[in-house]
Amino acid sequence: MQRIVVDWGTTNFRAYLIDEHERIAERRIAPRGVHNCEGNYSNILREFCGDWQSLWPDIPVYLCGMIGSRTGWYEVPYVASPAPPDALFRGLLPIPGEHNVFMIPGMRCLTPAGIPDVMRGEECQVLGAISETDNPNTLVILPGTHSKWVRVQDGCIHDFATFFTGEMYALLHHHSSIGAVLDPAHHHHESFQHGLSQSTSAGGLLNQIFSARTRTLCEDTSGQSMSAYLSGILIGSEFIHGRKLFDANSELLLIGDEPLATLYQLAATFFDLKLRTLDPARAVTCGIARICAAGTVNNPVSGRKAVISG
Rank of each mutant, 00 (worst) to 15 (best):
V126K: 01
F164L: 15
C109H: 00
A83G: 07
H175S: 15
L182E: 05
P96I: 10
F89V: 13
S201N: 10
N137P: 01
T133F: 01
D159N: 13
V126H: 05
E98A: 13
G166M: 06
V126D: 08
S131Q: 12
S69R: 04
I178R: 01
Y62C: 13
M168T: 15
W149I: 15
M66Q: 08
T138S: 12
G121K: 01
P116Y: 07
C109K: 00
I130N: 00
Q198M: 13
L182A: 02
A161D: 15
S199T: 11
P57Q: 08
R90V: 09
R151C: 11
G166I: 10
P143Y: 03
A113K: 13
V126N: 01
E123W: 01
I59H: 03
L171R: 12
P96H: 08
C64R: 01
G106I: 07
D154F: 03
V76N: 09
G97M: 09
C124M: 14
D86F: 01
L172K: 03
Q193F: 08
M103W: 00
M168C: 14
R70K: 10
L93C: 13
S199A: 14
S176E: 02
G106P: 08
I104A: 03
A170Q: 13
S199K: 07
V118E: 05
V101E: 02
L110M: 14
R90S: 11
V150G: 04
H188Y: 09
Y78P: 05
P82N: 04
Q125N: 03
E132Y: 01
G68Y: 08
M103T: 06
R151T: 09
V140M: 02
M103F: 02
